[in-house]
Design a protein around this nucleic acid. Structure first.
Length: 895
RNA sequence: GGGUCGUUAGCUCAGUUGGCUAGAGCGUCUCGUUUACACCGAGAAAGUCGGGGGUUCGAGUCCCUCACGACCCACCA
């Protein structure tokens, strides 16, 4: 398997040919190689046979101690019908970094991919295509529509999966789960049945948010409120005057003829069943118990007292329409009022609106109501206001609150449990404050409407007794529209579940915990990574349903990424034309560059711009790695024992070891941007700029290979394609980098590593002086009794590009900062010209010394600051004083 | 009406428990065709860390306040 796969890649002799890494010709092959080798599959670490052993020389193979503790991530399933957008790009990059990192640390890792039927979203697309051929949903049965959409989605599904591969997602395709798969439906029904039996699901006629265009209801959270200019009308409601009406009020004052109410939705007047006032409102309190003769409808409705009414708002009197306003509905319940539905689910007035209005679209009815009121002299005022109007988040139609019989989830007990789990710290959040926001959200949650009147989704497995509407039974034979049981006929509910009801069960559905499938050990998930925008709709539901169904939290940690904005920090939108397609970026710069770019400059929970600059940096890094490998593989010589002798060799191992440790903690804290920067800096500024350059003066092929291997391993989670491509091209590696296990670094000598830091300091100073030399001359280094320089002449000469490094009596420009017994061998005349620079340096150093002395003479600093800090300050002061004295000797007498 | 987040170099962003000289990428400037890489190398310029106040030996970091920006929640008739 490996050999075959290996040849696939090695057909191209990349290393020997191209100076520039070209991701396009290689990425697809690399992904195919991984996939065919099965290294992303779940349980592949479970048995020792499953992994081939790497052949790379290792100092201590015994030192490998892989931990097989499961590590699991479930991908938030992208819409099966759509293309990936920039947010998916970020999701995949983050999740795949985590997955690959933990896989390399020996964890038994799985990254489960998914595809979402995206109920409403997909339905909207399909309904539009029906419109295109002059049809509508009413031309078909629910079952026919379901079958049609299934085919429609099946045609599209492949796209998204190809795109996930292009992004390098190292997921287990064998466990790809579609949200309408049999096992998903089975689990969702199981949960639903249990909830129904526990009384957590109930049938209720309540006010729901209804989109009259799409003919379906929504959960509260799916409604978008927008501030809009509107009109508010004052309408006079005449008091009923009949035999029972008193002539005066209890306090003897005359009875008013009318009450003025204000409304923005006059058409709902037709459904009014009361007028409410605040009992403490002196203007109206004596009217409570009397009645109004409702205009246009000639219906007598009571005047009631309810503390909900704010006396300071409007006229202090409110018309009550229990069928079309959630607050009115609650007042209606408290006062046993009728609910008269005057607006139908189609947005037209119902028969109950009376013969003059029935059948009219509600906006036309509004005009007609106003006209009629005007004619009767009851319209008393009109003014402009702005208020929040609920809209359908998809089509923007105004949401009608109306009464509808639906299935509801009783949220309070589920939310209570979720809050307890959160308060006990069972789930750790990144960023942390999102936990508190979520707790707050749970505390105000109302019951959740889970019925949707669209055909595309999981059918609700409930059947209603034809003869007795109160008699509902659970039955999962949803393929039938009717069931005959005990001589009774039960008819299937035509509705489907809210998508979030099933996706809220995603963690235990995909790992198949309830049926103890082969992924059960991966539950609870190690981390749930997703966008902050679905904290409430998704994370909150997963937590509630997970706790309910499995008795444990569905994930141990939650990482929330913020929205990806355009390069100028603006929200991406089709209308603005600033949408960036991640696959376009991949096509231009490569998958690795995209991943690196989108992960850099990003921290948890923050909306942040997508910066192409960082993608370019990523692309450049890929090229850097590529050429690093080209150099290493071209170095002549035997691949001898891995030994460390020169200071730069000890130093580079030290730097890699430190970076490796640092990386571990950054990954554990989900500090992706810093991790990417660390990898970038380590490879570029340390390995390439210092170690490789130094090694040119002291060849050590075995070490070069070792370092290259570690660099590839370290950067692989971020740049999987280029690192694997290099790995496959190197003659001394085998197997797959994606399947390599991390192990401890070889040991190094700290003293020797320190020596290299001194050499770096010297080289840096030489370069600094060289750059400022008045004559651009090419001068050598002359050193006295300095063992460090003596032992590293070649390396210093190479790094500082010196024509000559020789021992002697140091004359010329003293290298004061590095404190070595050496001078840049510049003629006296030039030194004189250079004096100005030295005086500048003296001034800076003097300022620093003054600053340090001031601090060290501050008594409260000495007594209150930690001892080590004070010591450090003293040491720096001494160093600066030394530098100053050396610099001073440089200045000519008259300077 | 509540709540959250942000404001750091020209641009996009890092900066964990307060520690002294605030970093990166890209961009800008100078020099360099040194055989891994010009998607390169060496060097440089550039920040009163949004304003004000406070706590502290010490504040980008903690507290208060103001300004501007983004987002979330909420039924205001």
């Amino acid at each position: 398997m490996f050999d075959d796969g290996r040849k696939l890649v090695l057909q191209y002799p990349y290393m020997s040919l191209d100076k520039v890494y070209d991701p396009q010709i290689i990425e697809a092959d690399i992904y195919a190689l991984w996939e065919s080798a099965g290294v992303f599959d779940a349980n592949s670490r479970g048995s020792s046979e499953a992994r081939p052993k790497a052949r790379l020389r290792r100092p201590s193979d015994e030192g490998v101690s892989p931990s097989y503790a499961p590590y699991s991530i479930v991908m938030p399933p992208p819409n099966a019908n759509g293309n990936l957008h920039i947010g998916h790009g970020l999701t995949v990059a983050l999740e795949d970094i985590l997955t690959r990192y933990h896989r390399s640390r020996g964890r038994d890792t799985v990254y489960i991919p998914g595809a979402d039927h995206a109920g409403f979203e997909t339905w909207v697309v399909y309904e539009k295509s029906l419109e295109g051929i002059g049809k509508s949903r009413f031309d078909y049965t629910r079952d026919e529509l379901y079958a049609q959409v299934w085919d429609f989605v099946a045609k599209q599904r492949g796209n998204m999966e190809i795109q996930l591969r292009a992004l390098g997602a190292s997921c287990d395709w064998k466990h790809l789960t579609f949200t309408l798969d049999q096992n998903v439906v089975r689990t969702v029904y199981k949960t639903f049945q249990q909830m129904f039996e526990d009384g957590l699901v109930y049938r209720g006629e309540k006010i729901v948010n209804y989109c009259t265009k799409h003919q379906t209801s929504f959960a509260d959270i799916e409604v978008v409120y927008r501030e809009e200019a509107a009109k508010m009308w004052d309408i006079a409601y005449p008091l009923l005057a009949d035999d029972t009406t008193p002539e005066t009020l209890p306090d003897g004052s005359p009875l008013p003829k009318e009450i003025i109410i204000s409304t923005t939705r006059p058409e709902t007047l037709l459904g009014d069943t009361a007028v409410a006032v605040n009992s403490k409102d002196g203007r109206y309190s004596q009217l409570v118990g009397l009645a109004i003769n409702l205009p246009l409808m000639d219906r007598d409705i009571p005047i009631i007292a309810d503390d909900y009414v704010d006396p300071l708002f409007g006229t202090g009197a409110v018309k009550i329409t229990p069928a079309h306003d959630p607050n009115d509905a609650e007042i209606g319940l408290r006062h046993s009022l009728d609910a008269i539905q005057v607006i139908g689910t189609d947005g037209h007035m119902t028969d109950l609106a009376g013969p003059d209005f029935a059948g009219l679209p509600y906006m036309e009815a509004r005009d007609k109501v106003l006209q009629a009121l005007e004619n009767q002299g009851l319209l008393r005022g009109e003014r402009d206001i702005t208020h929040k109007v609920p809209h359908c988040y998809k089509c923007d139609a105004v949401i009608q609150p109306l009464l509808k019989e639906q299935w509801f989830v009783q949220v309070a007990p589920l939310a209570k449990r979720a809050v307890e789990a959160l308060e006990q710290g069972e789930v750790k959040f990144f960023p942390a404050q999102k936990k508190d926001e979520l707790i707050n959200y749970y505390k105000h949650l109302r019951d959740w409407n889970i019925s949707r009147q669209i055909p595309w989704g999981i059918p609700i497995p409930m059947f209603q007794n034809e003869a007795d509407p109160e008699d509902w039974i659970f039955d999962n034979r949803v393929g039938e529209t009717e069931l005959k049981i005990d001589g009774k006929t039960y008819v299937r509910d035509e509705d489907t579940f809210d998508t979030w009801f099933s996706s809220g069960q995603w963690p235990f559905v995909t790992t198949d915990v309830l049926e103890q499938g082969d992924l059960a050990k991966y539950y609870p998930l190690s981390v749930m990574e997703t966008g902050v925008d679905i904290l409430y709709p998704w994370i909150s539901r997963m937590l509630m349903l997970g706790l309910y169904a499995t008795d444990q939290v569905p994930f141990k940690e939650v990482y929330l990424h913020g929205m990806v904005l355009d390069p100028h920090g603006k929200k991406m939108s089709k209308s603005k034309g600033n949408v960036i397609n991640p696959l376009d970026v991949v096509a231009e710069f490569g998958s690795d560059a995209f991943r690196f770019g989108i992960v850099s400059a990003r921290s948890a929970g923050q909306p942040q711009a997508f910066s192409l600059d960082k993608v370019i940096a990523g692309r450049n890094l890929c090229n850097k790695l590529w050429n690093l490998a080209r150099y290493v593989s071209s170095t002549a010589g035997e691949n001898g024992e891995l030994t460390l002798t020169h200071p730069h060799e000890h130093w580079v191992i030290g730097r890699l070891t430190d970076a490796d440790k640092k990386l571990e903690s950054l990954i554990a804290d989900y500090r992706f941007a810093e991790a990417a920067e660390l990898v970038y800096g380590t490879i570029w500024n340390e390995v390439a700029d210092w170690f490789i350059e130094a090694s040119k003066a002291a060849p050590n092929p075995a070490l070069l290979r070792y370092v290259l291997g570690r660099v590839l391993e370290m950067s692989h989670p971020f740049l999987p394609f280029v690192t694997e491509a290099i790995w496959q091209s190197l003659p001394w590696t085998d197997a797959l980098l994606a399947d390599e296990l991390h192990e401890e670094y070889i040991t190094y000598d700290i003293e020797k590593a320190q020596d290299f830091k001194k050499i770096q300091k010297l080289v840096t100073e030489i370069r600094f002086v060289q750059a400022d030399l008045p004559d651009q001359g090419d001068y050598g280094l002359i050193y006295g009794a300095d063992d460090l320089i003596a032992a590293n002449v070649e390396v210093i000469q190479k790094l500082a590009k010196l024509p000559k490094v020789e021992q002697g009596d140091p004359t010329g420009i003293r290298l004061a900062n590095s404190g070595r017994k050496a001078c840049l061998n510049v003629p006296a005349k030039i030194v004189e010209k250079y004096a100005e620079n030295i005086i500048e340096r003296i001034k800076t150093t003097e300022a620093e010394i003054t600053h340090l002395e001031a601090r060290l003479s501050n008594q409260s600093y000495l007594s209150k600051a930690p001892e080590s800090l004070v010591e450090e300050s003293r040491a720096i002061l001494k160093l600066k004083q030394d530098i100053l004295s050396r610099l001073a000797r440089q200045v000519p007498e008259n300077g």
